[in-house]
Amino acid sequence: MADVSNFKINEKWPAKDPSVLQLYSFPTPNGVKVSIALEEMGIPYEAHTVTLADADVKSPEFLSLNPNNKIPAIIDPDGPGDQPLELFESGAILIYLAEKSGKLIGSGAAEKAHIIQWVMFQMGGLGPMFGQLGFFYKFAGSQWEDKRPQERYIGEAKRLLGVLDGVLDGKTWIAEEYSIADIAIAPWLRALDFYGAKEAVGFSGYTNVAAHLDRFLERPAVATGLQIPPREPASRAA
């Protein structure tokens, strides 16, 4: 197992235990995907709060790990070939952790492909579209006189919720069993509360989706992972 204490990011977020996986994140929908997965898989890790402020995500230390300046990112000291692995993009991290642990990615090639399909659905559709909905419904875009962008993303959110509601009909989880597909999707469903947009998209009418989110939030590992890392960073003194 490699020692990750010599990575540049340690200059701002020093590892207390360099022998375990290091998570650099913030409790946003994308950020909590990884902390929830780590909790569900039982992988030892150390979490560092990287706020969304430019002083953090655009710092030289964080950019040394993720040049795209977005959370989450990880360093795994126990990577392939006994070499440390640096990784960003929440979907890529979920797939890597599932394959590393052998958990939450299905029991065969077909089921694995199906699960990854829904992770990509979240990464390419649900996340970006809900994020735009948040901008135009709650944040700066909500002040624009032209409401066509807001209407466009409300409509797209409804369409995506309809897709999910259909696939969840008669099912407990997205795939045959609980998986990283659920971990990818459910935090973005929860974000509709934060955006104050549940009523606008008619969330209660998507009964299968609403029940899925309730089941997800009842899981102990989810309850823990949603709080990691804390929104307020700990002291960065070495």
Rank of each mutant, 00 (worst) to 15 (best):
H48G: 11
T49K: 04
V50A: 06
T51G: 13
D54Y: 02
A55Q: 13
D56Y: 00
K58T: 06
P60W: 06
E61N: 03
E61Y: 09
F62S: 02
F62D: 08
S64C: 13
S64D: 11
P67W: 07
P67D: 12
N68Q: 11
K70P: 01
I71D: 08
P72R: 06
P72A: 07
I75G: 04
D76M: 10
D76C: 08
P77Y: 07
P77G: 08
P77C: 07
D78P: 04
G79A: 00
P80T: 05
D82K: 15
L85G: 00
F88I: 05
E89H: 00
S90Q: 02
G91A: 04
I95Y: 06
I95T: 14
I95N: 03
A98H: 00
A98I: 00
S101K: 10
K103W: 09
K103R: 15
L104H: 04
L104S: 01
I105E: 07
I105Q: 02
G106C: 04
G106A: 06
G108W: 02
A110S: 14
A110I: 12
A110R: 14
K112R: 15
I115L: 12
I116Q: 13
Q117A: 07
W118E: 05
M120N: 13
M120P: 01
Q122E: 15
Q122Y: 06
M123I: 12
M123K: 02
L126G: 05
G127W: 04
P128L: 05
